[in-house]
Nucleic acid binder design. Structure first.
Lengths: 178, 178, 178, 178
DNA sequence: CATGAATGAGAGTTCATTCAT
DNA sequence: GATGAATGAACTCTCATTCAT
């Protein structure tokens, strides 16, 4: 993960990756079928974990729509930060999977997005939210969230929770009044 | 640019790049010193163009702080969309420049960010904006903007102006009330 | 070695070198880190072998200073002839090693030269030798020896021992009376 | 010449060579037909100059055979030193000329060698020299002379004349008594 | 006499992957 | 589960040379 994150998928060599993991080059192939296979595995885990955690947070939250959505937002952002390397890779290297494998991941992502879209749609219908263009707002919010993996530094002044809270607020503000 | 955008810097070969440009491989080296040199040139142009356009938009706008900032936001997003490939590359491949060259680009980027930061700081002081954490808000907004290069498709329903307008509104909302 | 000797270091391609060795090009890199690395290995072996053999010859010789030095000279020249290709390369291609690696070799060479210098200095002091300028004589002798790798042909009329004997005599003559 | 001397023929690129000479790459081809052509020209000049100078020195010297040979030796060595770069190239890069061109140079060299061989033969016949193997002695002497281009440094303690004198003495000693 | 653009071949090196053991 | 040897394709880049102007 670290290699993919720092060097990119194509910039990472199996030799270096193996060496960093304390394995022989050839031995890696006893665990993964190919370089792409490693990337797939990395992405699959992160993406399924994130959706599980986000969904759980939503369900754990109270009945209020706002509370549920906010809980989802915060959990999502928090996951991005606490797994920053893997999430950065998930965002930036997904496109290097071949189509077949990519779609496996995209399907899960779409599900994740659907979770938020549904809650937002509900809120729009109920009048809780006043966004003029829910679709644009959703995607703007989600890419804003993803952006956290680009700038966040663990040794910075803010912890995962603080950032998650602020980001959740930004997202809600957009939904409520833009 | 297209090659870098679709295949990534490391996934792009000089041979393919040359072929797509209608040049011989070796002839490319009469115009660029290296593969990295090409990337540098691409990023330099896009980054200086964008800052020029954004600055011009701010200056062209009225006296009101809100108008100026909004004009800057919209110009920024519009540039991202109208030069989506180059801006996508600028966001995703910057890290593959060696440190020396990367800093050339980062310096310009920082300047760009400073432009917005200053206006926002002004607004916070004047009371126009009520963001609790201007720094976090700024970076959230800018990465949200950058995210447009990831999802926007030219053959989609929205034109550059429409998206820019919505995104500008999202950003202002955050600044005003979050 | 043959390639370096006939074509020179820069005139030798890894492809040809690999082919002549019955190896795949890429497989060569499983045994040597680089082209320069091969040259280094070649030079290192020859230079350490030669110093070992020369030193051994000196030690095996009788007590007389003249005998010891002569034995060293003859062993040195004989090694040059019996390993003519490798010694020719050692003389002519050493300069194509990068400074760091070159100094590894030069250090051994200097040691070799020191062996002779010390014996000569002893002889000068004892009055056995009457060279006016021992330093110049030493270097003249050593480069004369090295020159053998340029003209000697294995299919010529003289064997290694014959040449070594003559060369040893030339060297001693210089030391004794010039 | 400097390029060939420092980098070797194959290590020298026409681009660098042209640049160092203050010429455009393509313009070099208005003066020389090819890279090899440059080397040929360099070698031709040095080799004919040296033979001319050596021959002149021999003729200028007195009637005594010893004087004539010594004068030739000294002139030869002096030329090597005063044109050290070109002579070093002549010694080390000759073999990179194609056979046809190489023979042009070798022919002149042989002539040069013949000059010395004849004088030595004369001396052997007259009893002035007592070398047992004139041929070996000649070649040993000539390669000893050539060796000067390897170790001599212009900023060292000895001038061309001093070295030439010593080397002449070494050579005569060999001829007289070895 | 001088130039810049162009080219095909080839340089050294690294790649992901395979395979017998 | 682990290894070292091996491979063919591909990599970026440089080469000497040519050519029209």
């Amino acid at each position: 993960v670290r290699n993919f994150s720092e060097l990119g998928f194509h910039g990472t060599s199996m030799r270096k990756l193996a060496g960093d993991a304390g394995l022989t080059l050839s031995n890696v192939y006893n665990y993964f079928p190919s370089k792409t296979g490693i990337l797939l595995e990395v992405l699959r885990r992160s993406v399924t974990d994130q959706i599980a955690i986000t969904t759980a947070a939503v369900e754990r939250a109270g009945d209020s729509l706002t509370d549920r959505l906010l809980a989802g937002f915060e959990a999502f952002v928090k996951y991005d930060i606490e797994n920053i390397e893997v999430c950065f890779v998930a965002n930036s290297e997904l496109r290097y999977l071949d189509e077949q494998r990519r779609e496996q991941i995209v399907a899960v992502r779409d599900e994740q997005q659907k979770l938020f879209e549904n809650l937002i749609a509900e809120g729009v219908e109920s009048g809780d939210f006043r966004t003029a263009y829910p679709d644009t707002a959703t995607i703007a919010i989600l890419t804003m969230f993803a952006g956290v993996t680009v700038w966040y530094r663990p040794d910075g002044p803010l912890g995962p929770d603080a950032v998650a809270k602020r980001y959740g607020r930004y997202a809600m503000t957009i939904l409520v009044s833009a």
